[in-house]
């Protein structure tokens, strides 16, 4: 049963299918908002198969082992994070006190792999993309951490399942975290490197950033890892900030869960269709001057409320 859970449902296979599906949803919505047709539903899968079949080229100067292993590390990290997140019930597949921190750390790994992948490709565009990835990482990571941990603080529990249980018992308290949800959604754009924070892979400036030298199946794995990261990070936000419908029967809960993920994907698609790409220094300023104070205020608010509740 554990193996079934890990490999089939709600494990790797489910994640791959959901990742590709929501990539389609994202691309289709983006296209429709731009008054275009958009791709057919199987396009992400077709792209993936095509990339797998393509020739793989590894730059001569690149560190071969790192170059090849980075996509796998990114994929593994995102998938492992998924097992600790409660999806459509208050239970996660695996759970322990402090797993919320572990999930956050597992989710920072892909960004680090982007950096290492870009840096060890040794091409100029990759290097610049890698450095930008890391610069951006330092800007959005702190607000993201503060925002995501605010509900944990309120629930006084460091396991994701525990937080979900707490908010299912006190659903109104979840509304308190709305500013943090906003901060988390915006920083998520930075984590996923989407417009307006797609600075590390801005195609008109640095071609494809860290991925410039990647081809064939390695690129396919990276893209799959990013698709899955959307689902995992979306699930994390949903579990933290929208813990509604977790007590429903499993099938209904599953539908509600899919709706919630669609909501996150839709917000990302809308935000990237109405904004221009920022410059790296504008992005850092925005994260530190606006997002960080908001997240900090949320933490203070939650501390005060928690004081009242427990006194």
């Amino acid at each position: 049963m554990a193996l079934f859970n890990i490999f089939i449902f709600p494990g790797i296979l489910f994640l791959v299918v959901a990742g590709l599906w929501f990539e389609f949803v994202d691309r289709r919505m983006y296209a429709r908002m731009q008054h275009r047709q958009g791709p057919p539903w199987f396009q992400p899968l077709a792209d993936f198969i095509k990339l797998i079949a393509k020739e793989t080229i590894i730059p001569e100067n690149a560190n071969r082992r790192l170059f090849v292993s980075m996509p796998v590390v990114a994929l593994t990290a995102t998938i492992s994070a998924f097992f600790y997140i409660p999806l459509w019930s208050t239970h996660a597949l695996y759970s322990f006190q402090g797993d919320s921190i572990v999930v956050m750390y597992l989710l920072t790994l892909p960004t680090l792999t982007f950096f290492l992948a870009g840096w060890y490709s040794t091409s100029l565009y990759s290097t610049i993309g890698a450095v930008r990835s890391l610069t951006q990482f330092f800007a959005y990571e702190i607000p993201l951490f503060m925002a995501v941990l605010a509900p944990a603080m309120l629930a006084n529990d460091w396991s994701l399942a525990g937080i979900a249980t707490y908010f299912t018992a006190h659903p109104l308290l979840a509304l308190l975290n709305v500013p943090a949800l906003g901060v988390a959604l915006v920083t998520l754009l930075g984590k996923l490197e989407r417009v307006p924070f797609d600075i590390p892979e801005a195609e008109t400036e640095v071609v494809a950033g860290a991925f410039t030298e990647y081809t064939g199946r390695h690129l396919a794995l990276f893209r799959l890892a990013i698709d899955i990261e959307v689902i995992v990070a979306g699930s994390l936000l949903v579990a933290m900030f929208l813990p509604f419908g977790l007590a429903l029967p499993a099938w209904l809960g599953f539908l509600v869960y899919l709706l919630k993920i669609t909501f996150v994907v839709a917000v990302i698609a809308i935000l990237r269709s109405i904004m221009a790409r920022l410059r790296i220094e504008q992005m850092v300023n925005f994260c530190w001057k606006i997002l960080a104070p908001v997240a900090l205020a949320q933490l203070l608010l939650n501390l005060v409320v928690k004081g009242f509740l427990h006194s």
Binding site: M33, Q34, H35, R36, V195, P196, D198, A202, T204, S273, I274, M275, A276, R277
Partner: peptide, 13 residues
């Protein structure tokens, strides 16, 4: 110009 600054929606319109 819109595409150069990553604003593809304006490009399409």
């Amino acid at each position: 110009a819109a595409h150069e600054v990553g604003f593809d929606t304006l490009l399409m319109y």
